[in-house]
């Protein structure tokens, strides 16, 4: 942990959001399309082993954007496949992403129990 990681976290994370905002404003693509596309991109980058170097450089700047979700899905599937063969693609799929998905489901459910939309 050093200050450079923080600098790159800000620059890389901000930069990704900067580009995404330009895509949203300059095309008719909606957020749903964009986020889906980013996840697919993450999966491909993960398959090619290209996203991890960015995580090493920028830390949170690379792990927070949704691209990281696609990357983690792919990495989980690949790692397990290397250990146990083709079936590993199925068993390893959510290996690395279960924290995010589980947390999102639990928090959503709890929030729905205690509050309602403000409008």
């Amino acid at each position: 942990m050093d200050w450079q990681t923080y600098l790159f976290a800000f620059l890389v994370g901000g930069g990704i959001c900067f580009l995404c905002q330009l895509i949203l404003d300059l095309t008719k693509l909606t957020l749903g399309y964009l986020l889906t596309g980013l996840t697919v991109l993450g999966g491909i980058l993960g398959g090619l082993g290209l996203y991890d170097p960015l995580i090493k450089l920028a830390g949170g700047g690379a792990t927070m954007p949704i691209i990281s979700f696609g990357n983690s899905l792919a990495k989980g599937a690949i790692a397990e496949a290397e250990k146990t063969g083709v079936l590993g693609v199925l068993t390893g799929m959510f290996e690395l992403t279960s924290t995010g998905i589980t947390a999102a489901i639990i928090f959503s459910f709890l929030m729905a129990l205690v509050t309602r939309p403000k409008g």
Partner: peptide, 11 residues
């Protein structure tokens, strides 16, 4: 804002 969110994530 994206930079700040990621900075927070790193922290």
């Amino acid at each position: 804002s994206g930079g700040v969110v990621c900075l927070l994530g790193q922290a």
